[in-house]
Structures are given as C-alpha cells and as structure tokens.
Design a protein around this nucleic acid. Structure first.
Lengths: 347, 347
DNA sequence: ACCCTGGGTCGAATCGATTCGATCGAATCG
DNA sequence: CGATTCGATCGAATCGATTCGACCCAGGGT
C-alpha cells in the first residue's frame, strides 16, 4: 500500500498535464478531445491505477444514477417464487437496459421502511404494492422521481400498467357457471399485508388491502356472490395445497378458482392427495398463464413480459420529460383440461 | 409549479434560521441538536416540501451508497427461473438488509458491459459468474470495492462462498455405480458463456468456462470417465426435457445425472413422454434440493439460503474493514425415489 | 471564585466529478 | 486577405449534503 488515498480524476489530469475538465472529457467522450491528449490521459490513468470516474460523484453532478428502484412488498423469496413476477421484471430490465440502467430491489417491509426514500434512484416501479406505500410515493413525488406501478392500486401521479383483472376473473367464473357449477370456492392471493392464511369473512374481505386479489375476487363475486373465500399467504404451490386441503374437507365445492397458476397447481395436488379427480370431481382454474407441474390448466394468460416492458417504456418516457398515459393489458382465456361439468356430490 | 428548483437542505436551514450543518444534524440525528431546533428544521422542511437529504449527495459525501451489486451472467428471466438462485439472493438480501442496504441487479452481458464499473455500489456479489468478469473485478479492486463470489471460480482478492460441488457429484455418481449403472449420461448447466445446447465433445469440455458445471462434471468423471455429456442452455425444466429426449433416443443410458433439479425434472418428463419408467428403466439424479413437480428426487441438497447469508455476512465484514475467509458449504445427499438398480436394456 | 466539561451551533472545507463560458490558434469561406 | 467558425483546452462554478474544528455558554467539581 504505497499511496494512501485512491487517485481522483484531478490527479490523473495533473499527471497527464491537462486540466481536469479535459480529463473528464477524455473519459466521458462528450466533447472534442484530440486523440493524442486522450491517449495521454488514459496512460496517466493506467499508471495511477485509476479505475474511471467515481459513480457516486458522477451521479450527484449529473443528477442521474442510472438506477431504477423496484419496490416489492414481500420477501424476495416469496415474490420471486412466482414466475409471473420474474417475467415482468425481465421485461422491465430489458427495456430500461437500453439506457444502461439497472434495477435496485427494494423490499418494503415493516422494518426496512425508509429504504425507498434513501436510495439514489432515478425512477421507481411499484410491483404489486398495497396502499401502504402511499407515504413513500409522496416522498418520491416531492423529489420529482417518476413512479410507475404494476399491479397496484391507482395512485395520483403514478403511471399504472394495468390488467383487466376483474373482467378476466369474471369470465373464468362465468365459464364455470355455464358448466353448472354453483358451489365454488376462491383461493386468493394475500388479501392483507399481514399475509394471514385462512378463510375470509365478508368483513375481512372489505378491509382487504391487496389490490390485485381484491380486483380478481370482485370479478368472481359478480358471478358467484356467495363463493367461499380462502386467502393464501403467498403465491406458491404449497399455499395452494394448504388451501385445497382446507376447502375440500370443508364444503365439497365443485370448482375452485385460484388467483394464480401456482395456487391452482397446489389445489390440484391437494385434490389428488385426497383422491379427488380433476376435472371429473373438481374443476380448477388459475390465473397468469405460466406452466406449472406440466399441467394443462384452464386459466387466464397475461402478457407479463410485455407488461414489464410497458413499465420500462413508461419509465424511459418519464425520465425524458414525457407524461405517458396508463397502459391497460388484456388477459386472454386459455382452455385447459382442468375444467369439466359440475359433478353432483352424493352426500 | 410555483418554485422552479427543488428545495435543498441549505434552503431549509435558511428558513429555519439555522446553519446547514445544524439542519443536517437534525435530519441524520448524528450529533447533538436541541429538541426545539429540530422541530423548527422539520417544520421548515414541511413548509418547503423538502423530502429529506438527497441520496446522491449523501452517498458522495459519505462514500457509501447503501447498495450492494449483484452480478448475474444470464438474463434475469433465465437466472431467476431456478429457485436455488432466488434462495441465495434471499439470504443475501436478508443479511445486508441489517445495514439498510439493497441489492442492485446487474446483468453482465455482451452489450451491457460497463454496468458494474459505473454503478455506485459499496460491494459486489458475483453469482455464478465465469472468468469473463475478471476484467470488471479488476476495476472493482482498484476502486477498493469488496467482491464476494457465490458459485464462481476462485479469483484473487475475492471472498468465495463455496460448495463441495465435486465430491458431492462424485457421491451421486458412485451411488449409481454401486447400483450397477455403467451407461451414464450427464446433463450439465451451461458449460460456456454462449449457452450452446447439445452434446459436448472432450475438447469443448476442456474449454468450458462455466465453473460450477465444470466442477460437478469433474466429480462425475472420477467415477464415470466415459460418461456422455449434454450441455443445457440453462437451468430450466424445458432444457431438461430437450436433453432427456436427445439422450434417451441417442444411447439408451441407464442413468442420467442432471446438474440441477430443474434439469432432472425435465429429463423425467422426457422419459415419461417416451414411455420410459423412472426409476425402473431409468435412474435420474439432480442437484440442489429444491422441490419440482412434486417429484421425490434423489439429489444433493445445498443450503442455498445459508450460502446467501454467508455471502451477506462476508460483505458486511468487508465493509467494516475486516478480511473474512472463504466459506465452504456441504451438499447433503438426499435419497429420493428416482434411482434404482441398473436395468439391462434389451436391444 | 475558577477551571473544566460538554451540549449546541456555526463556518468552512470536502467528497469527485461535470459543465458552462471563455480563450486561443488554425482552418475555412467569401 | 480579413472575418468567421470550429476544434481543443482551461478555469471556475456547481451538484447537495456531511463533517471537522472552533466557539460560546451554562452547569458541575474543587
């Protein structure tokens, strides 16, 4: 360790015998610099072991950090277990990658509160966040940081990348109704931030904060106002299994509407465990259109990568000073082999 | 839009009638400030709609950004498809969350080269990266940014969080050998950065850059020097299916060693498609110990979350000026129901 | 009564680069 | 050949906070 301090651009400039402005130009390339000078600067940098302009200083001066915050409410382990999230993230990363930006994962929990407020982000994308993040959004707005939301409740000054959750769910429900199903149960995504698992009473239902879950449930309610509701603690197969076991031992529904394909797969596993055949004895539908367990699930396929992309484009537009409009996507019905005519249960 | 510019700490201080140093202390709490002064500063901030100290400026001055870079070689969609990666990431996030740090996802591809170099990170964790990132690591070292590697080749000045890939794979192979298997094929994780899919010749094998794949393969080679090798293009079920189809039509192996559970699940699907029974006609083993398709796979379970945690602790230690040692983890053999005695094929 | 301690506050330096305007010589244009 | 760009470079201001050292004053110890 010869030199105590790390070299700065100024040191490099001095060594190359130029001003630091010129040295800066030599690195960033945003201005005319003679080839010879540039060489000299680069050589000096090499001699001093200078690794290029400090990103922190650069981002202060430029007012841009090249970082897009991604706010997720769950633990990573939970959120990323569902491929649909990954797909959206991938589309987003792809699009913002065009300006060389990277994604900063911010998990908004009870403990890690101010994380969003204190991160050097150029923009923020909310992923399935409940109203709890409203406070943080306010801080971002005051800072002039653009906010885009996927799967989140409409918020003022936030660009929404939506899906027709309600009509799509309604469609699934009505297909089941047409086939004679009446005793229907719903397995929802977490309805509350606490991720409480179990049967949900109507009171609890109306106090729900999970936006997507609420929307999809509302769609089903339009067809089956009386449907039994079980809230999962997350979108995983195991949660679907737990839900399936509970519901199938409970009231013998002829159809179960799961709010994600992972949950649906879990329900089917539970049914299989209990010797209940799908779709003969029980119809199951999912949501998302991801492949799980190799099952041909009847579901709604949502264009997840495109939604991520749309969010990315909105971010780019916002960053460029534009004011993009909300984007609405459509979930497409996919006919699988997990739905049949309602079976009359013999009691 | 009344005020053109966004308020700064100095403006707040002026309005509160204190110096900016005092205002700073009022916000950061790192120094004695009378309760009354603090109130006044906060009130002034509220009036001016000031959202708190600018993270960019703060990170320049403090020399810390609170961001840990996570370098991934694949596309997000690819890397995150494997739950094992998610688990490691979760452990890491958990641990570094203790100092309020968040994770920055950096995908190191051909196009997005300088991303690692130009991100304001305090430390970097390499996730299953090949030697290609050596250049970037060098830049980081010159900047004095700590680097920790999970599933990556040993690099000088980089703390490694290892797994006994080779002996664990060897163990799996020897179990198969004991059961009489001789015609064995291996489905590897991508052996090259190009992610070329297909049979691998010995020459290609020796030119491989994928560290984990190479290690695990070496373990198998100690038992089955002649094993046929198929390189997948990624750790997904579909890749396993492709590999399975190709291998099972090719040479009728009695056992297939997959380098991940997802690949193993795919191989089993392919076998099922072809009417080959597992484990009666074909034995299949995986690696990682994640649940897929509800199969009871014979595999090696690695403590993924703990590895992530260990990486996180190493980062914290490094950031605190310590010099943590490499950490080695052990993969545990899990007896499933996908392995049986070698079947003699009738030609 | 005097010295010392420390809470509370301020001024100024600093973090490390980017960028705006000015300068100067050489090349281009009419 | 004079006027005018244009290319190359430099100096100085700036981005927005944090922090170090100094200062003042009140209370406690002897």
């Amino acid at each position: 360790m010869a030199n105590e301090a790390r070299p700065t651009l100024a040191a490099v400039a001095a060594r190359a015998g130029v001003s630091s402005s010129t040295a800066s130009l030599a690195f960033s390339g945003s201005g005319p610099v003679s080839a010879e000078t540039k060489q000299r600067v680069l050589a000096a940098a090499a001699e001093l072991d200078y690794a290029g302009p400090d990103p922190r200083a650069r981002s202060l001066r430029r007012g841009r950090s090249g970082i897009i915050g991604v706010v997720i409410e769950d633990r990573l382990r939970d959120a990323f277990r569902d491929p649909i999230i990954i797909a959206m993230l991938d589309g987003l990363a792809d699009e913002v990658g065009a300006i060389g930006a990277s994604l900063l994962l911010i998990t908004q929990g009870e403990e890690t509160d101010g994380a969003v407020e204190s991160a050097p982000v150029d923009a923020v994308v909310l992923f399935g966040c409940s109203t709890r993040v409203t406070v943080s959004v306010d801080v971002l707005r005051r800072r002039g940081i653009p906010v885009v939301a996927i799967e989140a409740e409409r918020l003022d000054g936030v660009v929404a990348i939506d899906l027709d959750n309600r009509p799509a769910s309604r469609l699934l429900a009505s297909k089941l109704a047409e086939l004679g199903h009446r005793a229907v149960a719903v397995v929802t995504l977490p309805l509350e931030a606490t991720h409480r698992r179990g049967l949900v009473s109507l009171e609890h239902e109306s106090a729900a904060t999970g936006w997507v879950a609420t929307e999809r449930l509302a769609g089903v309610r339009e067809v089956f106002p009386e449907a039994i509701v079980w809230s999962s603690a997350g979108s995983f197969i195991e949660e679907g299994v737990l839900a399936g076991r509970a519901l199938l031992e409970h009231d013998a529904p002829t159809a179960i509407i799961a709010q994600s394909d992972l949950l649906a797969a879990g329900v089917i596993r539970a049914a299989t465990e209990l010797g209940i055949r799908v779709p003969d004895d029980l119809s199951v539908v999912g949501f998302d259109g991801v492949e799980v367990d190799g099952i041909e699930l009847t579901t709604i396929r949502q264009p997840a990568v495109d939604r991520g992309r749309a969010a990315g484009r909105a971010v780019l537009d916002l960053l460029a000073g534009g004011s993009p409009a909300d984007v609405g996507f459509h979930g497409e019905f996919v006919e699988g082999s997990t739905v049949g005519r309602a079976r009359v249960w013999v009691h």
